[in-house]
């Protein structure tokens, strides 16, 4: 399955594929486009990816999750191109016999994809300005440091 999509993500269809008699828990995370950021009204987002590398890295992240937790299935699909407010930017679905593994693995996958995969968000605001996003904010107390890339911050 491809992890980068140039068309709308139909998470209802993706979720339906996860129903199986051995999965007592199916967890779905959908990253949706908000209408505001940093006090500014957002019109839409555009995502760009270095696609061959993003595909490879998401594959590696999913395989790492499958090794770490007793999952039955795990997928991650990230949209590229323009997305309107309320659109789906990324979906992660995990299934397991019991909920703990599906929840934990789902969080692990989305955190690593956000901070490691070569995918970039371009935000467009109602005032006509735009800005490229940066997820890696090490000054934030909530910054998850289990992601594996090396930081190169200016002194």
């Amino acid at each position: 399955m491809r992890h980068i999509s140039h068309t709308d993500i139909n998470y209802a269809d993706l979720f339906a594929d996860f129903r199986d008699p051995n999965s007592g828990a199916v967890v779905m995370f959908s990253g949706e486009v908000r209408d505001n950021n940093k006090g500014k009204a957002v019109t839409h987002l555009e995502y760009e990816a270095y696609e061959p590398m993003a595909e490879k890295m998401i594959d590696e992240i999913l395989n790492a999750a499958l090794e770490k937790w007793p999952l039955n299935k795990a997928i991650c699909v990230h949209r590229v191109g323009p997305i309107d407010v309320c659109g789906c930017a990324v979906v992660v679905i995990t299934s397991s016999a019991h909920r703990a593994a599906a929840y934990e693995a789902n969080r692990y996958i989305i955190d690593r994809v956000k901070y490691e995969a070569p995918i970039w968000k371009h935000e467009f605001f109602t005032d006509g300005t735009s800005e490229w996003g940066q997820n890696c904010d090490c000054s934030s107390p909530s910054h998850p440091h289990h992601h594996e890339h090396k930081h190169h911050h200016a002194e």
Binding site: A89, V90, E116, P118, I119, W120, Q134, N135, C136
Partner: peptide, 10 residues
């Protein structure tokens, strides 16, 4: 070479 800025997916 490919120069990769900080990721901002999700």
């Amino acid at each position: 070479l490919f120069i990769i800025p900080p990721s901002s997916g999700g």
